[in-house]
Design a binder for these strands. Structure first.
Lengths: 250, 250
DNA sequence: TCCCAGTTCCCGTTCAATGGGAAAACTGCG
DNA sequence: CGCAGTTTTCCCATTGAACGGGAACTGGGA
């Protein structure tokens, strides 16, 4: 727009500003935001002010800025994420109650696993997965099933790399990953020992559409050496329930 | 901006476009959006295209436009709504398991009750509350506790009206509402028979901060003539748990 | 008190955004 | 299949919302 050497659009700037908020940086000043979004101070203050006026950001009298509830509301009330999550929640609760571990729901978004829900279990171990957080497909059990039961173009794209290392157990060799995906397809589930945390094993099953493609992944996080078969069975049953719920008319 | 008789800002237009998506209108064409947002067809198509490019909207090859998952992700990952909901979910699950009814979590937003979570119960009755949906404060049990345990300026603002009627049972007389609020404060909970559905009673308790102000409301939806005391007790316990969880360092 | 960083506000400048309109594409109906 | 109406894409002259430097103000820390 006018008088800017950068040629950015307003829309792109808004997105850049929103991207400066993260799960661990939920409060910022306008100056912080401007620095992180690469905006001149005057512009940062002005645009943040506009977003506050529009309800997308929220600012308190001390100048602390947060993502606005109005944005959450608009983003959530009609979103596919809410629909999938609501379809899955009862089944996930049953899995969590029986397996007594963290239970997660992820979908494919921009070639990554995006987590829509995570039911914590108080006695279960730590896990870095967050709601509205992402992981590379190759680096987590959820991602493996989304990938293995995704389209061939997706698989080729991911296998073309780079396969970033998230932990010492992350598969980074395309050949090895290709074999892992074949095994996931054969078994109908993924086991990922130590992929995220050394002390844990991720177990995931796909939630599939009529064509057999994965539309979501259900997973639990077990202790590293725990038996996986009971969890797989619970997850399978849950995935069937979610598939049924998602196939029902709205 | 340039050449527009309307004088709208880009930000306001983006918000207007997002507002055209509702829980019952999750899919639209660009032309639909433009009509509803009051934009000329060319502009509608262009702005929707920009938002799709930015990930805020999502468009399929058939031109069906939805709210984008990227928007959901950015709005959710650092939002206060997620934080409150995550603090409350375990307690809500316990309420739901024991009371065996729909269980809800709401907060105050722009002088209305905004619902952050709603755990459905399969055998429970219908209820119109939606996640990321709103209700007037005076017209629901959740709203009553948010109002009764809110600030005096809030109460005066709401009591100044208009008190819109949502159902035949909605209190629309300021005097009566004032007395109801005093009763809610005295009791420490709200009972709202028939406020939303003739066949149901809403029961809500406040989740309070150190100063005693309501920061959220926990509620259940009971059959109209069901006893309320057991639910109140469960909700109270749950509210204490949520207060503890919210007071803990992140 | 001084210094520094953040914030607010002003204002000349300007280009991203605008929307009318034409053409192409699509859809639904007879 | 043809037709009418609608949607979508694309072009382009126009322009005012958006820009950001800079001055003044504010608040916090040493």
């Amino acid at each position: 727009m006018a008088n800017s050497p950068s040629g950015d659009s307003v829309t792109d700037r808004i997105v850049r500003i929103l991207e400066t908020f993260t799960p661990t940086r939920t409060v910022q000043t306008a100056s912080d935001i401007g620095r992180r979004a690469g905006l001149p101070p005057s512009t940062a203050h002005r645009v943040v002010g506009d977003l506050v006026d529009a309800g997308l950001l929220d600012r308190d009298p001390e100048g602390r800025v947060r993502v606005g509830l109005r944005l959450w509301e608009l983003a959530t009330r009609s979103s596919h994420a809410l629909r999938v999550r609501q379809a899955a929640l009862p089944a996930m609760e049953r899995v969590q109650a029986r397996v007594r571990e963290h239970t997660q729901l992820a979908i494919l978004e921009q070639d990554e696993a995006l987590f829509l829900e995570r039911l914590s279990h108080p006695q279960a171990g730590a896990n870095i997965t967050r709601i509205a957080g992402r992981l590379p497909l190759h680096a987590a059990s959820s991602g493996l099933v989304l990938l293995a039961f995704g389209g061939p173009e997706l698989q080729e794209r991911i296998l073309a790399g780079p396969l970033r290392r998230v932990s010492p157990s992350t598969p980074t060799d395309p050949g090895a990953l290709r074999r892992t995906l074949a095994e996931v397809r054969r078994l109908g589930h993924a086991i990922a020992p130590g992929y995220i945390e050394e002390v844990s094993t991720g177990v995931a099953v796909p939630v599939r559409d009529r064509a057999g493609r994965a539309i979501a992944a259900l997973s639990v996080v077990l202790p590293r050496e725990a038996p996986t078969a009971p969890a797989v069975e619970e997850l399978r049953r849950a995935a069937r329930d979610v598939e049924t719920a998602l196939a029902a008319p709205a």
